[in-house]
Simulated assay, not measured.
Amino acid sequence: MARGASSHFSLKRAEYDRYYPTVLGVLQNSGFLVMDADRDENRAFLQGLPRSGAGPGVEIEIRRKPKGLDIHVLVVPHEDLPQDKGQFLMKRGVFGTLQSDPASQRTLEGILPALRRDGMERTVDPRFRRTPTNIPEWIFFNLKTGTVTWFLGTVIGLTGAAYLLFWAPEGPYRQNSPLMTGLLLVLAPWWSGIWGRSALRGLAAAFVTVSLPVTFYVVSALGWGFPGLTRPPGITLIQVLLASIQGPAGIAVPVILGILSGIVGAIAGVIGGRIFPLKARRSAESI
């Protein structure tokens, strides 16, 4: 059973053709002589023996991936390495049965920083970032932070509620009080809330969606302004609340309905957040 130490890591933006000679330089600068190498277009093996003739030897596998490279490093006592050309210990699958060896572990820890340093990854030109940093995120309808979808969902829900109250054409459905109440206090705030994608945003969106048009409706019903906005038949729930709350106190009706609809919006926001999870805003320096 082989003794030694091993490591595996990935470099997401490293280039195969540039990384291979870099590994050769790392081995030589770390006191190894490259005794064997096997390389094709997508995979390379290197074997290094200690220049002093004593101590651990090293094998490195470089494998090209669709994005970046996979690197395997194996360090074992040099006498355990195969002597025949083209033969590599890591090809025999020794990683799963490798026994700990302190000297090999120290050697591995000594060469890993040079093999994994960030400078070997290809730098991406900021001009080719997916979202240019000099342009506001909202122009790209950014679904990660959810601000744009929250705003547009609220606007659409608010427009639908206002249309239902003030501009919907006459029809049998306007005589159906449960249907009208459900459309106003359930469907409209649900639509606005689900695009908030969180409970708090959903509550706020639903509150605005219902309370704002209902405020104009109540002001018209109380005779304070906006004549003609209330058309018969009115919304039964609003009429009942106005009959229960006499006088100027009736202006509290939009707040009451906004809070009730906010509960619906909060539930919808939680569901929307599970379907389209919110993510943290990407910093300008990230790629």
Rank of each mutant, 00 (worst) to 15 (best):
Y16T: 02
V23C: 02
L237W: 00
H72V: 06
V253G: 05
G157I: 06
I245V: 14
A161S: 13
I71N: 01
R201S: 08
T215P: 02
L200R: 13
Q99R: 14
G228T: 06
V270A: 06
G272C: 07
K65C: 10
K279D: 02
V208R: 01
E41Y: 00
P82L: 13
A204F: 09
D36P: 02
S261G: 15
E170D: 09
R13E: 13
G265S: 11
I287F: 12
K91I: 08
L165I: 08
T131Y: 04
G153S: 08
V23F: 01
I259R: 06
H78F: 05
E61Y: 14
S198N: 09
G193V: 02
G119T: 11
K144I: 00
S192H: 02
V94T: 09
P136C: 10
V218A: 07
L33R: 10
R281Q: 14
L242W: 00
G262S: 12
Y163S: 13
M90A: 06
D17K: 12
G202D: 04
T215V: 08
I135G: 07
V26C: 03
L165S: 02
K65V: 08
P50E: 11
A204K: 02
A252E: 00
N134W: 15
G182F: 10
V214A: 04
F166E: 15
L46Q: 04
S6D: 04
P102D: 15
P126L: 12
M120V: 15
S104E: 14
T123Q: 14
L69S: 14
D84S: 09
A252C: 05
V76E: 07
E41D: 06
A161P: 04
Y20F: 12
L242N: 04
K144H: 06
T145Q: 01
G265H: 04
P56H: 03
G57A: 12
G31D: 07
G146P: 04
D84V: 11
I251S: 13
R129I: 01
S192Q: 06
Y173I: 14
N29E: 10
L152D: 13
N142I: 00
L203N: 06
G269V: 07
S10D: 13
G247W: 09
I259C: 12
W224G: 09
R282N: 01
A266Q: 11
W190V: 05
Y16A: 03
D125H: 09
I235H: 08
P232D: 11
V73H: 09
G258A: 10
A206P: 00
G247Y: 10
H72C: 03
S7I: 02
Y163C: 11
L237Q: 04
L81E: 03
A252F: 07
P248Q: 12
S6P: 00
L278M: 08
G93C: 01
S10K: 09
A162I: 12
V23I: 13
I267M: 14
L200H: 10
I271E: 02
L184Q: 07
T145R: 01
S104I: 12
P102T: 13
D17V: 10
M180Q: 11
L108I: 11
A37K: 15
L187F: 06
L165H: 06
L237T: 01
V253W: 02
L278F: 05
T97Y: 06
E121W: 08
F276E: 14
L237R: 00
I135L: 12
Q239T: 10
L257S: 05
V218D: 01
A204Q: 06
L185V: 07
V219Y: 03
G119E: 13
